[in-house]
Simulated assay, not measured.
Amino acid sequence: MTASSAAFATATDASSPGKDHFVVLDGLRGVAALMVVLFHLFEPYALGNPQVQIINHGYLAVDFFFLLSGFVIAYAYDDRWGRMGTLEFFKRRIVRLQPMVILGSVIGAALFALQASPVFPKMADASAMQVILVMVLGFLMIPLPKSGDVRGWDEIYPLNGPAWSLFYEYIANALYALGVRKLSHRALAVLVALSACALVYLLVFGPRGDVIGGWALDASGIQIGLTRVMFPFFAGVLMMRLRMKVRMPHAFAVASALLVVAISLPRFGGLDRLWLNGLYEAACIVLLFPLIVAIGAGDKAAGGVSIRIARFFGDLSFPLYITHYPLIYIYTAWVSDGQVTPVEGALSGAALLVAAVAIAYASLKLYDEPVRRWLAAKLLRRS
């Protein structure tokens, strides 16, 4: 399995009163979420070979989400620490993120029984109690070792793989709240620079030439996960503090086009020059993605049809990201049976995309928003 989706805790904090809303950034988050779903739809046809993957760099959406998240977290909270404690911060993040994490785990458990296939070698050995236990541990964001993986893909959340990125999102949030928020601009810049060096080293000199990984609870998986989150998240914080913005007309269209093209380009270098692909991905994460966020942050007065679309998919982005993958498990098993014609694959993929968006929208309106309002009233003090 390739580096699944994305770390998506990048949701704008809805409880930040009196502040302008970055609608373009919300829209970009929605664009990235849609690209993640498309990446996963094409993934079974690559048969585990990243050289032929369509929408080849779709996993970079995770790194883009981390960057957005750092920017938004700093915008929402940097000026609130005098009247907000660390516990209050963590409660706000849990209220924002955990309801959908729980629902994603429930959906994953509910669809688990439909996924019997040679693609998932350990599923036949999983009992109902094991699945329930894995689901509950997923509610609590407790990562599982390989011995607890009921699916056999070495995922720390085997019922809903993309939740791995939320695990590292929470780590970055904790580092921010417990210390990084207190750093001066210069000290934060040093941290970001060192994190960039670690990221570039992984990409250019690592064994793969890409950032794929982070969902396994082993030394390599943890290294990749931490390396992926540290630079973009804290680069986003630094960008917000330095007010890094680029003003241009049609900001949403320009930034979306840059993001889609960067994620969709073929892999570079082939098997003989893996470093070349690593260099490309390093340029995307370290240079291009900050530019895209700066363009999005430079237009808060956006309007028109495109921005209404951006707002819709921005609201939908986190539910779409965290609920779509159980459908992908089933789709992957079906495609991997090897008896799917191109027409059948295209039609079923389109139907899955529509279903994923519909499930995400229903989850947002019928569950996520009401539950967050209720939790906020119960747990959060008024700002």
Rank of each mutant, 00 (worst) to 15 (best):
A356T: 11
Y331K: 04
S336I: 00
R373A: 08
T341Q: 06
A362C: 10
I359H: 06
A310M: 04
K365T: 15
V343K: 10
V335N: 09
V335H: 08
L366T: 01
A358M: 14
S363V: 07
L379K: 02
Y367M: 07
S348V: 09
I322K: 01
L352K: 06
I322G: 00
L320Q: 11
P342L: 12
A360K: 04
G345Q: 10
R373C: 00
A302E: 07
R311C: 00
I328V: 15
E369Q: 11
L375R: 01
S348N: 14
T341R: 03
K300H: 12
A362I: 09
A355S: 13
R382T: 06
G338Y: 13
Y321V: 07
V335Y: 08
V305Q: 06
Y367F: 15
D337T: 03
W334S: 02
S363W: 06
I322D: 00
G349H: 08
V371C: 12
G298Q: 10
L352T: 07
R381S: 13
A376M: 00
A350D: 03
K300N: 04
T323M: 07
L380F: 04
G296W: 06
D368A: 12
Q339K: 13
S317F: 14
Y321D: 02
V340Y: 04
L347V: 15
V371W: 09
I330N: 08
T323L: 14
L353W: 09
I307M: 10
D299F: 05
R372H: 01
E344T: 13
Y325V: 05
W374M: 11
G303V: 02
T323Q: 00
R373Y: 01
V371S: 04
V305M: 13
L352V: 14
P326N: 02
I307T: 12
R311E: 10
T332K: 05
A310N: 03
P342Q: 12
L352E: 08
V340T: 15
L380T: 03
L320F: 12
I309H: 02
A350F: 15
L320N: 13
R373E: 05
R308N: 10
A297I: 09
R308T: 04
V354H: 08
V340R: 13
R311I: 00
D337M: 05
A358W: 14
L366D: 01
S336R: 14
L352N: 05
L316W: 12
R381H: 13
G338W: 12
A377H: 10
A351S: 12
A356R: 10
S317R: 09
V343Q: 14
R382F: 03
A355L: 15
T341F: 11
T332R: 04
A346S: 11
Y329K: 05
Y367A: 02
L353Y: 12
R382D: 07
Y331G: 02
P326T: 05
A360R: 05
D368K: 09
A350E: 08
I330S: 15
S383N: 04
L380Y: 04
I307E: 09
H324E: 03
A302R: 07
H324D: 03
P326I: 01
